[in-house]
């Protein structure tokens, strides 16, 4: 029999109202308060413990409170944790999100909560936590508990969740599925609907992109430290850091101090997205070290940063690209670099 632990607040745990919102975490064996609704609905499981924490206590001591709660949860050795439902309660929503997130990460067991879609906790925790949609208030308790227990039952039975599961708030994760119809058939279905002004659903939401503001110009470039950065996949011959040909998740730095140009044969392109012949023939075409060194010697720039940074910008997800960009910028900032020549391919 699967063991379930319930997390709730002072109100739904029947300790008291707002006047009890400062109570630290406590637990009671078995089901207390709303936990009884789950006990009735989940007859095949054992509700071993109900953990209750005051809303204020949690929100004012998030790390301490959640640590104390985690100890109580771990003691009970659950297979699944249920938190809430929190409805539109701000503090309680955050507590449910935080506890579920920690349970999944630290204990590697499933956790389920229910929160109203516009509750701020949703935006913070939705990508990590299984959140069932709920109404704004406890008026939707019955329906919410039904939906939660539906998901919990599926998890207990090992039934794969639907993609997507209509009662859940989407985590925003794209997962692959096999449709019944081919892409071409779906495209024509969609076109016919669009032409006939009938409803259809696009399969990809169009993202809105960040607008990147250009940095102000360098006023005295003859005093500036300039770095060379490329997404063109230039690496020392033999690719010592194993930079992948596509979807790279890291960048490498290579020392170019004392080198006047990237010599053919010493460097190569490992980028799978373009024809590397010309880049291999003259790697300076992609990392223009030769020209930059000349400019440094002529005093047209202050100096060249002693490393070039390289990654393969090929089938890279926007998230990975953003992260690598930040990491590069941090390294360059910390090392007094004023400007960058970023070459793409």
């Amino acid at each position: 029999m699967k063991r379930i632990v319930i997390y709730t607040n002072q109100f739904f745990g029947q300790v008291g109202g707002e006047e009890q919102a400062n109570i630290p975490p406590l637990f009671k064996e078995g089901a207390v308060g709303t936990a009884n609704l789950f006990r009735q609905a989940l007859k095949d499981a054992e509700l071993t413990r109900t953990i209750i924490c005051g809303d204020n206590y949690f929100s004012e001591n998030v790390s301490k409170a959640s640590e104390e709660i985690m100890i109580m949860i771990k003691e009970a050795k659950p297979d699944i944790v249920i938190a809430g439902p929190a409805f539109n309660a701000g503090r309680f929503g955050m507590a449910c999100g935080e506890i579920c997130s920690r349970v999944e990460k630290e204990m590697n067991i499933p956790a389920v909560t229910a929160i109203y879609e516009e509750n701020p906790a949703v935006e913070i925790y939705k990508s990590d936590v299984t959140i069932v949609k709920s109404g704004k208030s406890a008026a939707s308790m019955k329906k919410t508990v039904e939906a939660m227990t539906g998901i919990v039952k599926k998890i207990m039975e090992g039934t794969e969740l639907e993609k997507p599961e209509s009662v859940l708030i989407p985590k925003g994760i794209r997962v692959n599925v096999f449709k019944e119809k081919t892409g071409a058939v779906r495209a024509l279905d969609m076109l016919v609907a669009k032409l006939n002004d009938e409803p259809y659903e696009s399969e990809v939401p169009i993202p809105s992109y960040d607008v990147i503001e250009a940095a102000p110009p360098i006023l005295k470039v003859e005093e500036a430290c300039i770095a060379l950065v490329t997404s063109g996949g230039i690496v020392p011959n033999g690719n010592p850091n194993h930079l992948p040909a596509a979807t790279a998740k890291f960048y490498s730095r290579y020392n170019i101090s004392g080198i006047n140009a990237l010599r053919k044969g010493d460097y190569e392109s490992v980028h799978a997205g373009y024809d590397p012949v010309y880049g291999n023939d003259d790697p300076n075409r992609i990392v223009p070290l030769d020209i930059m060194r000349e400019m440094e010697n002529n005093g047209r720039i202050g100096k060249l940063y002693p490393y070039f940074l390289s990654t393969t910008g090929n089938s890279t997800s926007v998230a990975d690209a953003k992260r690598m960009g930040k990491e590069m910028a941090m390294e360059l900032n910390n090392n007094g670099v004023d400007g960058v020549i970023l070459t793409s391919t």
Binding site: L161, K163, P164, E165, L168, P170, K171, G172, I173, R174, V175, N176, V177, F178, K179, E180, K181, T182, G183, A184, V185, R186, A187, E203, V204, P205
Partner: peptide
């Protein structure tokens, strides 16, 4: 994931 839609692979948000 042939982009002429020859296959049935697709993706959804969960």
């Amino acid at each position: 994931h042939n982009l002429q839609g020859y296959s049935k692979l697709s993706a959804v948000t969960v």
